[in-house]
Nucleic acid binder design. Structure first.
Lengths: 252, 252
DNA sequence: GTCTTCTATTCACATTTGTTAAGGAGCAGC
DNA sequence: GCTGCTCCTTAACAAATGTGAATAGAAGAC
């Protein structure tokens, strides 16, 4: 039964319930899997998209580089997340994607996405939803980078990861694995490595979080949310309205 | 002939050439116009989308607010830009949209967008392109907020505005109107008002730009691009490939 | 026209964050 | 068990940016 419970399917069904043929189509997309080791580039800024991909296990990042080496991590890719969806439209990518850990993923032709849109409007709706959510997540990151302090940003990011991991059953009881170096955190939050470390320490010292190796425990989610001014509206975790599904079914 | 040369049509035709029926459909969308005065909220964070809108003239911003009043301007809306496209999917908006200047715009039901997708795949492709570009712009803004200095950010933003305004014939000879207070610039760049002012002054003093009232002249675009590490790939200003158009035509 | 309110500008000073440097813990390879 | 990595941690100091306050010109209200 690994198919039925794949992270992608969990993610989709959190938004719109699927029927058997739709689940089968996803299973088909996901059938062909590759294993990739940590720190492998999957998409390179300025180069062609290799196709559309789905991450099954492991973590990856989407990032942009400046010519002098500075880089901004724009988003995390967690199990169930897709990348390169714009391969459909754009020739070249303006960002890179790289694995942080060993990972398992499927890559396929954009034509398959087009086929999905044609045959399975509900899936199309779900993917549109994910694209829109991706944009919302990036906008929220920009907001944090522009307006929040280092402390607030760190707290906010941890809460976001918690919420997103819960959807794919990778977080429980406010605990999850965070397979990420502090350098990655720094480049995500727009901080220097040293300051990222300082900030983490403050979070630990204030009793809001607890860290043991790669495992993190958000001890007081309420307080963290308060500190970070975290409002999960932007993650659009609710179910899609019937009306929206209908609009897609008719449109396509 | 105001229809044919509307900013939206210019924007679309920069990406994919249109036929008469497609232009007519856009003209139909744009027929019903409203005039709105400066500093009017068009979409409110946490509330329902009023619909989908197209801006014909004037400037607006898309922004996110924190509960203590801080706000991040996530993107500028220039003539020809759309807002609220996600009204299709999401019930509530995670961001606000407000005019900066007096503006003229059209608002219509998401159902019309669905109809467009059904009847005019080329237009659907163009709108998908714009959505993807919007995300790319926000990702680039996040990159600037996280990695670039105030000086670099300011230079980068001015170059972005120049490029985007050129598409809709609102910039010529590296000059354009910038109907924006320094407070707006500050909230866009994640700076304090005072620092935004300081940064502007440095740009003026270094001879890179010239300002007279609301008119700005980028005296040395090459040098600005160098300072800002500006690469316009993320604006995806090229024409859509035939293959991509085809994929859309078949998909929908 | 006069009065108010915005907006731009600058100063002096406070704070956050970055930089450089160094040491230590953990782990893979030998 | 050593050696060389990578990653975490901390300290001292430097630089960038924020804050509060004051002034002046410009624009809008009446």
């Amino acid at each position: 039964m690994p198919t039925k419970t794949s992270p992608l399917i969990k993610k989709i069904e959190a938004v719109v319930p699927l029927q058997t043929d739709e689940r089968d189509f996803i299973a088909e997309l996901e059938r062909d899997r590759r294993t990739v080791s940590a720190r492998t580039d999957l998409v390179k800024q300025g180069e062609k998209y290799p196709g559309v991909g789905i991450l099954h296990s492991g973590w990856a990042i989407r990032y942009k580089s400046l010519s002098d080496g500075r880089r901004q991590i724009v988003n995390f890719l967690l199990p169930g997340d897709a990348f390169g969806l714009f391969a459909n439209l754009f020739e070249l990518s303006d960002h890179s994607v790289a694995t942080l850990t060993d990972a398992s993923l499927s890559v396929f032709s954009p034509d398959l996405v087009a086929e999905m849109y044609r045959k399975h409007p509900k899936l199309a709706a779900a993917f549109a939803w994910f694209s829109a959510r991706e944009e919302a997540i990036i906008a929220e990151r920009a907001t944090g980078l522009g307006q929040r302090t280092a402390f607030e940003r760190m707290a906010h990011m941890l809460l976001e990861l918690l919420k997103r991991l819960e959807v794919v059953s990778l977080a429980n009881d406010n605990k999850f694995e965070l397979p990420v170096t502090q350098e990655i955190l720094a480049d995500t939050l727009g901080l220097s490595l040293v300051h990222a470390n300082r900030t983490m320490r403050k979070l630990r010292e204030s009793g809001l979080i607890e860290i043991e190796g790669q495992n993190i425990f958000l001890r007081d989610v309420r307080a963290l949310a308060d500190v970070a001014d975290f409002d999960d509206l932007y993650l659009y975790l609710q179910r899609m309205s019937k009306q929206a599904v209908k609009r897609f079914s008719e449109a396509v």
